[in-house]
Simulated scan of single mutants.
Amino acid sequence: MDIASRADLDVLLRRFYTAAFADPLIGPFFTEIAGTDLDAHLPRITDFWERALFRAAEYRRDAFGPHAALHTARPLTAEHFGRWVQLWHASVDGLHRGPVADRAKAQGERIALAMLRRLGGKDASIAGDGPGFIPLATLELRRAA
């Protein structure tokens, strides 16, 4: 079944962030550096995704600012964004199939690439080699096809 509502997004995002918080590579960015409170974060990030996928919610926050602060505390690399994409895809695929789910995955890929480039400059490396890493270069290939 496809992503069809805010309730679907809430379940999906809770699943994703539970995995992300527990992940040894990107989890510390959420738990140690940002000290993210999942219950406080979920309504805001659900607004973001509801706006991105359904044009239905108000989202007037600066999505880049918190990532820039994290990057200042500990640099975010292609490997971090690749893991984020990997977990995002797995979370979406584990719950949903359809055009909105496909759009959610594609949007996640665009966000990862845009954040990496904005944080690291236009020459930011999209290479990485960690375990389970999805090279962001493959996303570039997919977009070019």
Rank of each mutant, 00 (worst) to 15 (best):
78 A>S: 15
8 D>H: 14
98 G>F: 10
48 F>G: 02
49 W>M: 09
73 A>E: 06
70 L>C: 07
51 R>G: 04
119 L>I: 05
86 Q>I: 01
83 R>C: 04
126 I>G: 04
56 A>R: 14
122 K>L: 11
48 F>S: 00
61 R>S: 13
81 F>E: 00
131 P>M: 02
11 V>N: 11
39 D>I: 03
128 G>Q: 01
6 R>D: 03
101 A>P: 01
51 R>L: 02
8 D>T: 10
89 H>R: 10
138 T>E: 15
18 T>A: 01
2 D>V: 09
33 I>A: 09
103 R>D: 08
119 L>W: 06
90 A>T: 00
87 L>Y: 05
125 S>K: 09
126 I>F: 12
55 R>Q: 12
59 Y>W: 02
53 L>S: 03
39 D>E: 15
31 T>L: 08
60 R>E: 04
55 R>Y: 10
35 G>P: 04
77 T>V: 08
122 K>G: 14
11 V>D: 15
89 H>S: 13
85 V>R: 01
106 A>V: 08
117 R>E: 12
93 D>Q: 14
118 R>I: 00
5 S>L: 14
125 S>I: 11
52 A>L: 05
46 T>R: 09
88 W>I: 07
33 I>P: 07
123 D>Y: 04
84 W>K: 06
27 G>Q: 07
111 I>K: 01
68 A>F: 13
105 K>P: 03
99 P>A: 15
65 G>S: 12
106 A>R: 13
22 A>Q: 14
2 D>L: 09
23 D>K: 06
68 A>C: 01
92 V>R: 11
62 D>A: 08
28 P>E: 07
42 L>E: 05
65 G>D: 04
116 L>Q: 12
110 R>Q: 11
15 R>V: 09
35 G>S: 06
9 L>S: 08
102 D>H: 04
76 L>P: 09
127 A>Y: 13
143 R>Q: 12
143 R>Y: 06
106 A>N: 06
58 E>K: 08
88 W>V: 02
6 R>W: 03
126 I>N: 06
69 A>P: 00
141 L>Q: 12
64 F>P: 06
16 F>N: 10
70 L>A: 04
115 M>H: 02
4 A>Y: 08
85 V>D: 05
129 D>L: 05
5 S>Y: 10
40 A>S: 09
105 K>Y: 11
29 F>N: 04
82 G>E: 03
19 A>D: 14
103 R>F: 05
96 H>I: 07
58 E>R: 15
109 E>K: 01
129 D>W: 05
142 R>D: 08
120 G>M: 04
48 F>L: 01
88 W>K: 06
4 A>F: 00
144 A>Y: 06
41 H>D: 07
72 T>S: 08
62 D>R: 00
123 D>G: 04
23 D>C: 08
10 D>Y: 12
33 I>Y: 04
61 R>E: 10
24 P>H: 01
5 S>V: 11
22 A>Y: 11
129 D>T: 13
110 R>P: 03
25 L>T: 15
83 R>D: 02
104 A>C: 07
37 D>A: 09
15 R>K: 13
62 D>W: 06
13 L>Q: 08
126 I>M: 11
101 A>E: 10
138 T>F: 14
80 H>T: 07
